[in-house]
Amino acid sequence: MSKKLYLLISILVVFSLALMACSSDSTTQSTDEAGNGQENGQANESANNASDYPSRTIEIYVGHGAGGGTDIFARTIGELLEDILGVNINVVNLEGAGGVIAKEHVANQPADGYTIAAISSFPVSTALGTNPAGLDVLTPIARVQADTYTIMVRSDQFEDLDEFLKYAEENPGQVRIGGVSTGSMDEINAARFIDATGLDMAYVPFDGSGDMQAALLGGHVEAILEELGPVIDYVDSGEIKPIIVFAEERLDEFPDVPTTVENGWDLTQGVERGFAIHIDTPQEIIDLLEDAIRQAYETEAYKEHEKQRYLHLREGWLGSQEYREKLEQDIAIYREVIQQLESQ
């Protein structure tokens, strides 16, 4: 490019920028005089959208596979929300990266209330730094479930916790504990359990709960970190059984199964499931969704679902603000846990 041509282009660019600046100043002055600028227009548009909300299908994105706890949670609440909100609720499984891909997708959609994330491993992925859609991008709507972890084994392989731990001690490096995803609640809590036992065991990640359960039944892993609900049919049939519960007190339904706390292990964290949405969503829409989810949570149908899947063991409900505070606390806790595990 010649120097003259380069100079001419530079002059044109500067001139264009100057015209744009003048046009912007003129527009700003005009809108200031009219008292009805672009920001007010956007605010009015958001208010109109909120007043008409919802008017079409709402999509709930699940970052884990079909048949797992988060998937069942989203579909159960989604079905109840259809009656409450009067629109279709479409649940979409978008697996990968411990649920991060689904959250990223929701964060990149318009902040209009029609795209929601079902979250479960949010605190861990945020603490690990693998979740770019943190609380500065997504805001919680409500927490619905506070689930309870267990270690599950095949009933024909181990009688109880003592036999399982003895086998692990006698076969270092041979015991595999399955969980859902890497960088997830499952991986961190499995690591904490292995660290607490002081034994040489390995964590094996699976894409979804169904794959993990199949691996246990097929003898590809010796145990899985799982909640009671997703495997209750296998438990009732006698194929799978819990050998320890991550809780302070024994469960009435399983009085013979010991807890982590009675073994001297401070492991009581469980998967907490709720919903989050783009942080720029109008507050009126967030409030409306929180109220609708609360109504779904209080229905007889959901309460029956809670009991059938052992979700009633801990109080699940937290509103938007309380849930945000809880997530902030959990993120801080897991950051500390992760630092401790990395330093060992």
Rank of each mutant, 00 (worst) to 15 (best):
7 L>Y: 08
10 S>H: 12
10 S>M: 14
13 V>F: 10
14 V>K: 09
15 F>W: 06
22 C>H: 13
22 C>Y: 11
24 S>F: 15
25 D>A: 14
26 S>N: 14
27 T>L: 14
35 G>V: 06
43 A>K: 13
44 N>A: 14
46 S>G: 10
48 N>R: 15
49 N>S: 13
51 S>E: 11
55 S>P: 10
55 S>E: 12
56 R>P: 07
61 Y>K: 08
61 Y>W: 07
63 G>M: 04
64 H>N: 01
67 G>D: 12
70 T>Q: 02
76 T>V: 07
76 T>F: 02
81 L>P: 01
87 V>E: 07
90 N>Q: 15
95 E>W: 06
97 A>S: 15
104 E>R: 00
106 V>W: 00
106 V>Q: 01
110 P>C: 09
110 P>W: 08
117 A>E: 01
123 P>D: 10
123 P>W: 02
124 V>F: 06
128 L>P: 00
129 G>R: 07
130 T>Y: 15
131 N>C: 13
134 G>H: 09
142 A>Y: 03
143 R>W: 00
145 Q>I: 07
148 T>W: 01
149 Y>G: 05
152 M>I: 03
154 R>M: 04
160 D>C: 00
161 L>Y: 05
164 F>G: 03
166 K>G: 07
168 A>C: 09
169 E>G: 11
171 N>M: 03
171 N>G: 10
173 G>F: 08
174 Q>F: 10
175 V>I: 07
176 R>V: 01
178 G>N: 08
179 G>A: 14
181 S>Q: 03
185 M>C: 02
191 A>M: 06
195 D>P: 02
200 D>Y: 07
202 A>D: 12
206 F>A: 05
209 S>K: 00
211 D>M: 11
214 A>W: 09
215 A>T: 01
215 A>Y: 04
241 K>E: 09
248 E>R: 11
254 F>S: 01
254 F>P: 00
256 D>K: 11
256 D>E: 08
260 T>G: 05
263 N>E: 09
272 E>K: 06
274 G>I: 07
275 F>C: 05
275 F>T: 05
276 A>H: 05
280 D>F: 13
281 T>G: 08
289 L>F: 06
289 L>T: 01
292 A>F: 09
292 A>S: 13
295 Q>R: 11
296 A>K: 09
298 E>G: 04
298 E>V: 11
307 K>F: 15
309 R>Y: 15
310 Y>N: 08
316 G>I: 05
317 W>Y: 14
317 W>N: 07
318 L>G: 05
323 Y>M: 08
328 E>T: 14
333 I>T: 11
335 R>K: 12
337 V>T: 09
342 E>P: 05
343 S>W: 04
